[in-house]
């Protein structure tokens, strides 16, 4: 127990050493570039992480078609009931079988909690979350969006 024998002086030197190491950390922090994002001014350079979930979207290809098969799995998966799907049955003329087709895909941003269960449930990857986070509107009705075109 060396430190026991020289308690007083070793305590002082140990304290000084540890305090100096702490001071070194903050000093390097003082001179590193600051991490603050000044949000409205920095819109052009703002980088949002790819994984950020801001709003549900339904991507459409260049023909205006989406991949949704109106199976309703996302509607069932949603714990808040923020997705409601309106379907209709269409009879295929070639095969004669009836098939569900999407009429409107309504998504209520106001009660979405961004859990991503709907995206995980979708068998066709028809829906996904986008980074577009500036979603504030003046009327609650505007939060209910129709995702399909």
């Amino acid at each position: 127990m060396k430190r026991e024998r020289y308690t007083y002086l070793s305590t002082v030197t140990f304290a000084l050493k540890s305090l100096l190491s702490g001071l070194k950390v903050t000093l390097t922090e003082f001179f590193t570039p600051k991490v603050t994002e000044q949000y409205p001014e920095n819109r052009k350079t703002l980088k949002i992480s790819e994984r950020h979930r801001a709003r549900l979207t339904m991507p459409h290809d260049e023909n205006g078609a989406n991949r949704c098969i109106a199976c309703g799995l996302c509607q069932n998966a949603c714990p808040n009931g923020s997705i409601s799907i309106v379907t209709k049955s269409v009879t295929d003329e070639e095969t004669g079988k009836s098939k569900k087709v999407l009429v409107s895909y309504e998504y209520d941003l106001g009660c979405c909690m961004f859990c991503q269960l709907c995206v995980n449930a979708c068998p066709k990857n028809a829906i996904e979350f986008c980074n577009d986070f500036e979603n504030a509107v003046y009327d609650r009705k505007k939060l209910v969006q129709k995702l399909n075109r």
């Binding site: 003082f30 600051k34 603050t36």
Partner: peptide
């Protein structure tokens, strides 16, 4: 204080 905490402070 802001600089030591890697912030900008009042701007």
């Amino acid at each position: 204080c802001a600089a030591f905490q890697c912030r900008l402070g009042p701007m």
